[in-house]
Design a binder for these strands. Structure first.
Length: 227
DNA sequence: ATTAATGTTAGAGGGCTTGC
DNA sequence: GCAAGCCCTCTAACATTAAT
């Protein structure tokens, strides 16, 4: 029974068009069906059918707003599942200069659904551990000092049942970065505060304004090798 | 009210796999 | 080899909504 369910779920992601749509949705934004059709390079009607299948499988949710139908990842756990599958897919060698540059940018800093991943994401986990802002003695927890520093930086952590902090394996660096409400709030605030800028294809640009706040979080951005 | 944009559905075609 | 079935994709038609 479970094997049948697993096969059915896997079959939903086995289609190249649906896989392209899921990867596009990993940037955390809500996409219209037309935008997803463009991302997957299929007709809007085809995209609409794929969105229906992804919705029925629980991978995405559809929100109707006027004549638009917005689609987004249903749950952060779904995003992490897709991210982990991408980890295997990205094992293939990169061809061409443009692809190589794109991969290098993604390796340095990118979004993993709603939080920061890549070299910067991993450095953030290391830095916050080293400076005692988080603790992993009894699972990942935010320390009192961590709350204080984040509060001083203006990062407001949303309430909710989702875990505050958890590890998320990074497919480029092959080490853990932080997932959960805390890193989600940090990315959101980082973008609005002008520390970070979301580029296309999930890449994140680290702006000069990020140097000071990231130093407070134990990350020496100048010491990280940029692409 | 009309036009344009967007999304959904039905039906058909093509490619592939499977069973005979 | 051939028919049947499945899956993916497309066009065409239609419904809905926003813009003019």
């Amino acid at each position: 029974m479970e094997t049948i369910a697993l096969a059915e779920v896997a079959a939903v992601l086995a289609d190249p068009s649906r896989a392209s749509m899921c990867l596009a949705l990993l940037d955390g934004r809500a996409w219209t069906v037309t935008e997803l059709a463009g991302a997957a390079e299929v007709a809007a009607s085809t995209a609409s059918e794929h969105v229906t299948k992804l919705t029925e499988a629980g991978f995405v949710v559809r929100v109707k707003q006027g004549r638009h139908s917005y689609v987004r990842i249903a749950d952060p756990r779904v995003a992490e599942l897709i991210e982990h599958l991408a980890q295997h897919a990205e094992h293939r060698p990169v061809k061409g200069l443009r692809s190589s540059v794109r991969v290098k940018r993604l390796e340095f800093a990118r979004t993993c659904y709603d939080h920061l991943a890549g070299t910067v994401g991993v450095a953030l986990r290391d830095g916050m551990l080293t400076t005692g802002l988080i603790d992993e003695a009894d699972g990942l927890t935010l320390t009192a000092r961590g709350r204080e520093v984040l509060g001083a930086l203006g990062v407001e952590i949303a309430d909710g049942r989702r875990a505050m902090l958890r590890d998320c394996l990074d497919w480029t660096v092959r080490r853990d970065h932080l997932a959960g409400r805390v890193p989600a709030a940090l990315l959101s605030h980082g973008v609005s505060a002008g520390w970070l800028s979301r580029e296309g294809n999930r890449a994140v640009k680290v702006l000069p304004a990020a140097e000071k706040p990231f130093a407070d979080l134990g990350v020496d951005l100048a010491g990280l090798r940029r692409p």
